[in-house]
């Protein structure tokens, strides 16, 4: 991978960090957390694709990474199945 790509990704990550800080100074109400998570997720994807060389990796590596996130999704979705429904009153 050409060296300039690493520097470009690094610049994007730095910009993302500054953006996170700047957004945190603005009150966006309900959107505060989703926007911060969106920026953080974008940064994580950049790290995985370029710094971890996944973009040029074989298909099996993609399967492993996607499966890992799927499993993380299982943890989140089923945990939130509890947290988001605790106020139900249909006992």
């Amino acid at each position: 991978m050409p060296l300039w790509i690493y520097f470009a990704v690094f610049a994007a990550l730095t910009a993302g960090t500054l953006l996170t800080w700047w957004v945190s100074t603005i009150d966006l109400g309900m959107l505060n957390t989703p926007i911060a998570l969106f920026i953080a997720t974008t940064k994580a994807v950049l790290v995985i694709l370029f710094f971890m060389h996944v973009i040029h990796s074989p298909r099996l590596t993609w399967v492993v990474i996607i499966a890992s996130f799927l499993w993380l999704g299982v943890l989140f979705v089923l945990t939130f199945a509890d947290y988001l429904t605790r106020t139900w009153k249909i006992y």
Binding site: V74, L78, A81, D82, T85, R86, W88
Partner: peptide
């Protein structure tokens, strides 16, 4: 095996809905 963990928590205070799912 990854989808069933909260059956250890039925009396711990999880929601009834999630208890049914698990």
């Amino acid at each position: 095996g990854f989808l069933v963990w909260a059956h250890h928590m039925f009396v711990a205070g999880i929601s009834v809905y999630s208890a049914m799912i698990f």
